[in-house]
Design a protein around this nucleic acid. Structure first.
Length: 565
RNA sequence: UGGGGGAUGGUCUAAUGGUAAGACAGCGGACUCUGACUCCGCUUAUCGAGGUUCGAGCCCUCGUCCCCCAGCCA
């Protein structure tokens, strides 16, 4: 009752699930907590799963417990072992491990079968011969009760024999199911004698041809949790209605432990779509280049885009856990990524849209080495040298023939600083006589300003980045932008979400110029290209000696605002 | 006009009967060898109506709005 708690003011308040866990630990209800992450191996993981992974593994870790990795593989018609591997890799990439605790619901098929027999013996399950169509019509509606199946009162012996027959492959697919015998009048449709076993004459990726009957999710999940001694079974909101069934199975079968199912709101992000079905459509319709397209918010896409795993974890911690349906703004994710990369990314110079600058008064054939910091706020990250010469590339947009007032970059007779280099002043412009396009600009440099400061104390407003022409490493850079133009591409059900795709979500630049230190970049290495953004060497297409960079995220840009006004 | 959930700034999250706080976004400013980073300031919120209470975002009553559920998917 009193307020003299010992929590430090800095401690982040616990979300409602961690609160429950803390209470259960304090009350002695549990001494060790065990959670689980239960993906179905029928697709790739996405950022929404990351929220669940961080919750389940995170809560376990924080409380010195365990989080089991469990594949919910009860529907062999949709599942493949290739997905199992990609899911494992993704979870590990996110920074979590399960140790010995790798499980499959299919590990429990024998036990699940035995439990089903028990249910039949208890008079709590029966074999039903109704067709799928008939079962649906018997189920009733939201406002009307269901009708009991004519097979509901079969004898135990008959049920046992029939169920065994199902197991032995004596009946055709769809001809019979095993149903829990609960209550056809329940206002909760999930309790109206739900199907718990169906016949599926399909080989399973792990059990092969051993089974031709497979248990349904509701029946399997609660029992798998109980078998593994899960204490807190965390799932998304749409399973709230299933909790009574979860509890019914465990109560009826008198399992030694009864995990508590707790539901939380799934993640929604603006400017993207999250459902497996829609992600699949984008892949199959070639709207993107695959599951790992860097524009996709699949874990593999995120990884390839260059989002650090630590940024994803931070993001998941930031957004919190609640029961309210919510839409997180994409900028929150981008901010987490920027924040992480700002801290860790070495700075380098790269020119994306090169414009040649000739420094007229710099001796031809001369080179020199200039020293640059790898991170302005972190001297411990060291320095590197960058070559300078008479011809350099600058960013095309850093020169304007007729610059507006607040444009601090190059223009005719304007002086700017070359980052870590010299002050240069533009003296003339070479144009294509026919098109009028600017081909190169001529500048003079002030030899006194080597390193970037003037002995006479004069200041320049702008500092621009550059790359020495003879030393430049040319490469491809891919600029990624949001995949959708609207916050919720799904909002209007009468319009296909793909109508909202951003036609400019990918821009490929083939003639970018990198400072030479970048030549040997390893796939996955990331940098801040100063004034341009954060970039990561592509995991698939980049190799040392022939780098290919993906733009992970832009830098915040207050110039665009000034430009507009 | 069945059942299950949920409503706090533009968006998330906190406040557990006692000063409505933080993050993102936005706006303004400072600083700057990255128009980055950092720093400072500002705008904006308890769904509504009653009630209990010295005191209500929190408790009670009645409303309103939103989401989920009729797979032999998970």
């Amino acid at each position: 009752m009193t307020d003299n708690n010992t929590t430090t003011p800095e401690a982040k308040p616990l979300d409602f699930i961690r609160q429950i866990i803390a209470d259960d630990l304090r009350s002695g209800k549990h001494h060790k907590i065990v959670t689980r992450f239960p993906p179905e191996p029928n697709g790739f993981l996405h950022i929404g799963h990351a929220k669940s992974i961080c919750l389940n593994f995170g809560a376990a870790l924080e409380n010195n417990g365990f989080c089991h990795m469990r594949f919910d593989d009860t529907n062999p018609s949709k599942e493949e072992s290739a997905y199992v591997e990609s899911i494992k890799r993704d979870v590990q990439w996110l920074g979590f491990g399960w140790g010995e605790n790798l499980f499959y619901a299919s590990d429990y098929f024998d036990q699940l079968y035995a439990f089903a027999l028990q249910l039949i013996n208890l008079g709590k399950a029966y074999v039903c011969d109704l067709s799928a169509e008939e079962i649906r019509s018997h189920r009733g509606t939201l406002t009307e009760p269901g009708i009991e199946s004519p097979y509901r009162n079969r004898t135990t012996e008959e049920n046992l024999a029939l169920f065994q027959g199902m197991k032995n492959g004596e009946f055709s697919e769809g001809s019979r199911v095993l149903r829990a015998r609960i209550d056809m009048f329940s206002p909760n449709l999930n309790m109206r004698d739900p199907v718990i076993y169906r016949i599926l004459k399909v080989a399973h990726h792990r059990t092969g041809d051993k089974w031709c009957i497979y248990p349904m999710y509701d029946y399997t999940h609660c029992l798998s949790d109980a078998i593994e001694g899960i204490t807190h079974s965390l799932c998304t909101l749409e399973f709230e209605d299933h909790r009574p069934l979860y509890d019914w199975c465990l109560d009826t079968l008198k399992t030694p432990c009864h995990p508590r199912q707790i539901e939380f709101a799934r993640l929604n992000l603006t400017y993207t779509v999250m459902s497996k079905r829609k992600i699949l459509q984008m892949v199959q319709g070639n709207y993107v280049e695959g599951w790992d397209d860097p524009r996709m918010l699949t874990i593999s896409g995120i990884r390839r885009r260059g989002y650090p795993a630590s940024a994803i974890r931070k993001f998941c911690a930031d957004i919190g856990i609640g029961k309210k349906e919510s839409w997180i703004d994409m900028s929150v994710l981008e901010n987490a990524v920027r924040d992480d990369m700002n801290n860790n990314a070495p700075r380098v110079m790269a020119v994306l849209n090169p414009l040649k600058v000739i420094i007229d008064n710099y001796p031809e054939g001369q080179n020199e080495e200039l020293t640059a910091q790898n991170h302005p706020q972190k001297p411990e990250m060291g320095t590197r040298t960058i070559p300078f010469s008479r011809e350099i590339f600058i960013e095309r947009e850093d020169f304007l023939e007729d610059p507006p007032k607040k444009f601090f970059r190059l223009g005719p007779d304007r002086e700017v600083r070359l980052r870590y280099g010299y002050f240069i002043r533009c003296v003339s412009v070479d144009k294509d006589p026919i098109t009028g396009e600017i081909i190169a600009i001529h500048c003079t440099y002030d030899p006194q300003t080597r390193g970037g400061s003037a002995p006479d104390g004069r200041k320049v407003k702008g500092t621009i980045h550059w790359v020495s022409v003879p030393h430049a490493v040319s490469c491809q850079v891919r600029l990624y932008d949001r995949l959708f133009l609207t916050e919720n591409p799904d909002a209007d059900k009468s319009v296909d979400f793909k109508e909202h795709l951003n036609p400019e979500s990918l821009t490929i630049l083939d003639n970018c110029m990198l400072e030479p230190s970048l030549a040997k970049t390893l796939p996955g290495e990331y940098f801040q290209f100063e004034r341009n953004g954060y970039f990561c060497a592509d995991l698939i297409n980049s190799q040392p000696g022939a780098p290919v960079f993906n733009r992970t995220v832009t830098l915040k840009d207050s110039w665009v605002k000034i430009e507009k006004s």
